[in-house]
């Protein structure tokens, strides 16, 4: 048995990009490997649930869980990992605040299932078959996890010690976080292990942002040429940099794309969408309703735009007139 502290990764409802991105630390992973032992690491090595259960409680030093929580299996695994881990880090936007999967909170589970299994153009399902949680097949019970009515962030299911947001997270942040924790330093519980300042602070284009910016009408980036040097808001593109935590390395901006808000808000903000909304609305030039509406016309889906990564952690959490989940 190695005496090196064990580190785990786990995947819930996510694209897997978070773990993929971890690989972007490149050679640094070798240094890390000197210090820690990877107990579970879905993208890199196979393991079974029994393997985790076999571990002593608290045996894992830190587990980084990515992905939102949608199924019963994910819940069970998270609870299991919680038991086995000293530190749980919500890793990436989905685990941190629901991420893209949480946009499903705008439709009901039934509508979702119906589309996926019946209405989607590529589906042929004349029997209207749906996945069942339990199926008796040739005398044996086959089970599938249950899909919950709504998508949750990790901290809405288990206790989370720290968070590293991002879609995907900047691997440097993970590395730094692990190094800090391994050094025995403990940031305050609940801390987001990324700079507590908005992206503009580090934006390469900040100097091109005029002191008094006013926007006649917002633009959608795919319909217009984007100047690679000028502040994107100044160009009228819906950039969420002012309301988004920094730490990403401004990858999108440098890639000539506006910020979409994946790092979530800075500390103290209850609702990222509301803050994006207020900062954008502040730039509108119009003085009357028609002009204001015109300016905002390009924001075709305000919820999708403002809560792209943060629906699950928002104040309302989901579309409120959906069926309420049934207590188990």
């Amino acid at each position: 048995m190695s005496t090196k502290p064990k580190v785990g990764f786990y995947w819930c409802a996510s694209c897997g990009g978070c773990e993929e991105s971890f690989v972007d630390v490149a050679e640094a992973i070798l240094d890390l490997a000197q210090l820690v032992e990877f107990a579970i690491f879905p993208v890199a090595m196979d393991f079974k649930r029994q393997d985790v259960e076999a571990l002593d409680d608290g045996e894992i030093f830190a587990t980084m869980i990515n992905g939102a929580i949608r199924t019963s299996e994910q819940e069970e695994m998270c609870h299991l990992l919680r038991r086995k881990s000293q530190v749980i880090i919500a890793y990436g936007s989905c685990a941190y605040s629901g991420g893209i999967p949480a946009l499903a909170n705008l439709v009901s589970k039934e509508a979702l299932m119906k589309y996926v299994y019946e209405d989607a153009p590529t589906v042929v399902n004349p029997d209207h078959a749906r996945p069942q949680t339990e199926t008796l097949d040739q005398g044996r019970m086959a089970t599938l996890p249950e899909i919950r009515e709504m998508v949750r962030s990790l901290d809405q299911v288990i206790e989370v010690d720290y968070s590293i947001p991002g879609c995907a997270p900047n691997p440097k942040l993970v590395l730094a976080a692990l190094q800090t924790l391994l050094s025995g330093e403990r940031p305050p519980k609940g801390a987001v292990l990324a700079p507590n300042v908005a992206l503009c602070a580090n934006c390469p284009r900040i100097d091109t942002k005029p002191r008094e910016l006013s926007v006649k009408a917002f633009k959608r980036p795919h319909l217009h040429e984007v100047d690679p040097d000028t502040c994107l808001l100044a160009q009228g593109f819906l950039c969420m940099g002012p309301a988004t935590r920094s730490g990403c390395g401004e990858a999108c901006i440098r890639g000539n794309m506006p910020c979409t808000g994946c790092y979530g808000p800075v500390d103290g903000i209850l609702d990222q969408g509301a803050k994006i909304l207020t900062s954008l609305a502040s730039l509108v030039e119009a003085h009357d309703e028609a002009g204001i509406d015109h300016a905002m016309e390009a924001i075709v889906d305000p919820v999708g735009s403002f809560y792209r990564y943060g629906m699950a952690k928002s104040l309302l959490r989901r579309k409120i007139d959906l069926p309420t989940p049934v207590a188990r």
């Binding site: 908005a198 002012p242 800075v266 502040s282």
Partner: peptide, 13 residues
């Protein structure tokens, strides 16, 4: 000061 990103939103306000 620590929280301000210098986004200048306030200045238009």
């Amino acid at each position: 000061n620590e929280l301000c990103s210098g986004c200048k939103t306030c200045q238009t306000m």
